[in-house]
Each structure stands twice: as structure tokens, then as C-alpha cells.
Amino acid sequence: MIPVGFEYSRPDTVDAALALLAEHGEDATILAGGHSLLPVMKLRLAAPEMVIDIGRLAELNYIRVDGDEVAIGGVTRYRDLVISGVLAAECPLLPAVARTVGDPQVRHRGTLGGSLAHGDPASDLPAAVLALGGTVVLRSPRGTRSVPITEFYTGVFSSVKEPDELVVEVRVPRTGTAGWAYEKFTRRSNDWAIVGVAVVDGRVGLVNMGSTPLRASATEAALAEGRSVEEAAALADVGTEPPADNAGTPEYRRHLVKVLTRRALTTAAGISAPGA
């Protein structure tokens, strides 16, 4: 299968990419790794007229400590997250989550900015950045703005990002020695998560439990109140609207998210899971 025809441009700078994006408006789409975009274009579920390739923009490919945060360029690939010494030391949740995305070939192409911009509620990294309390940095010809990830998503595959804006950077806190864990539940290794739970420093991000990545707010509140892991995990489905599909019923996902949250919290707390 092959996409509907389109124009292609690979600008050399972010400014040039933004100019093109502004020029073509909603007829244009950004291609970074292409592993969310090209499959839907091949199935002809998307047919942009202009494809702007930013995948090779070196200025958007970095991982560096910046104050209390780690700043990650928008086209930094999953593979780069996985092998990053900076992240291993400063924010180990992120490489651990990135390692579960797709397969090695996908991880050689897919980018952090692309994953966040695409906003699939079944994707791993948006929920991880959500659990981290990270920030999405958007740039357009109008300037640069930072949006807390908690305010970024507005619905399935949709966010506050304007059509002329580009995800140029993702900032996550340096979590240091804070406990963390990622529980991804799939049928097959490289399937999308049926449910995923990312835990770091007492915050809980949920994959595939609603139309956007979600925080398990009731669980987080219970933990803050000093309630037990068991009690807190039992609230993990509060406020969620899990989907129904071939891999699971909403009822099953509600059950699963509690189990996985309990396991993730237990792991993050450094307690070995009984009998598991």
C-alpha cells in the first residue's frame, strides 16, 4: 500500500520548517520519524498535501541537563532515549518506557516529539511524560511557548498545539533517586498497550484508559494522604473511560489498571511483589 501523492520538503532549519508550516497551514503535516504518520497515510486514513520532514534537524536532536530539568529535542529518537547516559542517571523512567515502544526498527525511527504530538492515548511516552509532570515546548513564527503536559491534550489525537506550531522540545524533571516503574500490558511484545501504568515519585500516568493519557489522580491523592499502596491502587480507574476493543473490555481494563498500578507502585517503592 502506498500513500496518496503529496509534496515533500526537508528544510535545513527549524525556522525554515516553521515558515513552510505557516505557508501551508492545515494542508501540511510534520514528518519526524514517520512511524505514526506513514502507516495511516499508507492505509489512506490521512492524506496531507505537504509533508515537512524535520527528522534530520540536528538542532532538535539532543538530551541535556538544564537546571532542574532534562531538556530533550523534539526529534530525539526512542533509541537515543534508551541509550542515553544522561537519562539513565537523571530520569530513568523515560528510557525504560522508550524501550517498550514498538520494536528495535521502530525505535530507530520514532521520535519523542512525534509521539507526544501524535497524542495516541495508547502510546507509552505521553503517559510517561505525564507521570513525570513534564513540559512540551512549542514553537511557531509567533514565538515559543511552554505547555505543561497536564494541559496539553484535549482529546483523541488532539492537543492545544496550533497547526503552525512544532514540538521542538520536551522537558522533564530530574527525578534522581525517586522510585519509578513502568508496567506495560500487552498480548504481544510489540503490540500497543492494552493498559500501561507509569509511576514516578508518587505520580501515576495511565496508558489507554481514556481518550487522552491520564493521571490517576485519586490514586495520587490517596498516596499523598499516606494510604497504603493497595488502597491507592484500588482507585486507579477513578475518572477513567477505558475503550472497548478486541483486546479488552472496559471492565477488564478497569480491573487491569488497578493490578498494574499496585505492581508499579510496589516496584517503585522498592518492595518486591509477593508471589509474582
Binding site: V97, R99, G179, R263, A273
Partner: peptide, 12 residues
């Protein structure tokens, strides 16, 4: 315990 299976990637 393979990645992508239910795992407990961990650090404390």
C-alpha cells in the same frame, strides 16, 4: 518478564 509483557522496570 519481557519488555512489552507486564514488567516491573524498577528503580528505587
Amino acid at each position: 518478564m519481557a519488555p512489552g509483557f507486564s514488567t516491573g522496570e524498577a528503580g528505587a
